[in-house]
Design a protein around this nucleic acid. Structure first.
Lengths: 181, 181
DNA sequence: AATGACATGTAAGAGGTTACATGATTGT
DNA sequence: ACAATCATGTAACCTCTTACATGTCATT
């Protein structure tokens, strides 16, 4: 592990508020799922490494009957590292939509099989859109007290746009397939 | 290598028309870039394996002064394998947009640094949208002769929707940032 | 003179996920 | 009774990318 996106993603999340590995996982899933993902298999080793290198510090919060929480906070050195990365150009985006790959080869199976993939794709996007709308409200409330979530709000807006675009496409695509003779 | 998406993606592409590894790379890049990607490091070994297992067959086309083209065609067994996969539910989509991760942590750097990321994100999407529109026309022309590209056309329409949504978001986001005090 | 298209291929490694281990507490 | 939440962590594995090797021909 040297320069993975995971490192900076974790650093950025911790820069907003001190958090445990468990919290980071949840935060990424609920707030950043539209453009990034991560798993425990990366979180815990990366936190250890970031701490070892002085980018974050650990504070143990004692828990009874369950593992102690290890709450990490970003250091000045960590902020600097994050800033350096933030100023570099971003890598190109990478998208993988298996459902679309199946649609692309749809001529080999009955129409209804492809419609089902599209319907399921739509359902996933409807659910993500609903979550994004709730999150938008939540962040707008938080924004009144603290400006720090302004940029998080912006990213939620992209999620909303993308999910809406996907849903509209799905409706249109299903219509086109059923009209096809 | 056992059940990777690459295997089925390659099988599907070859099912449309016989192709070489070089062609597959090009075809995926130009027609499927909005939802899937692949590299030579996967294409050539996967083709060899698919041939060994009888899902595709090879025909060598002699070339002078450059490596011979190895053109692969799908077999009946390959079609069956592809159909089986097409009938299974699709894996959830995975998206990685590094630019958005940088936007999310924008409070640590000057506004203009974030605007630059958004501008570049927009430029990439404008370029992809232009290509998608050209491709749409091309496929519509092909469709008149052969229905086989109907489903390819559908996937291009999703690309268009997504790129448009991204561009609209980018314009709005830049406006919101510059309005912010 | 340089770049990009044509055309194949491999080795090494980065980056990531999954499944497992452990176990109490809280909600349905 | 069952699932979800809380909370840490690791080992094995898999997938995929990158960089390299090799060389011609056509275009700018």
């Amino acid at each position: 592990m040297k320069e993975s996106i995971a490192e900076y993603g974790i650093l950025g999340v911790v820069s907003k508020e001190p958090m445990s590995g468990y919290d980071i996982n949840k935060r990424v899933r609920t707030r950043m799922g539209a453009f990034w993902g991560i798993s425990y298999g990366q979180i815990y080793p990366t936190l250890r490494m970031l701490e070892k290198d002085g980018y974050i510090t650990k504070k143990v919060v004692i828990n009874e009957n369950r593992p102690n929480r290890k709450v990490y906070s970003i250091t000045d050195k960590g902020i600097e590292k994050l800033q350096e990365w933030l100023l570099k150009p971003a890598e190109p985006e990478s998208v993988r939509i298996e459902a679309l790959l199946k649609v692309a080869f749809g001529e080999h199976v009955p129409k209804n099989a492809i419609i089902k993939h599209i319907e399921e794709f739509k359902i996933r996007n409807v659910s993500k859109l609903e979550k994004a709308i709730l999150l938008e409200k939540e962040l707008k409330t938080q924004l009144k007290k603290n400006e720090k979530y302004f940029y998080s709000l912006l990213t939620v807006l992209l999620g909303k746009n993308m999910h809406k675009a996907s849903i509209e496409w799905a409706d249109n695509a299903m219509k086109l397939i059923s009209e096809q003779i």
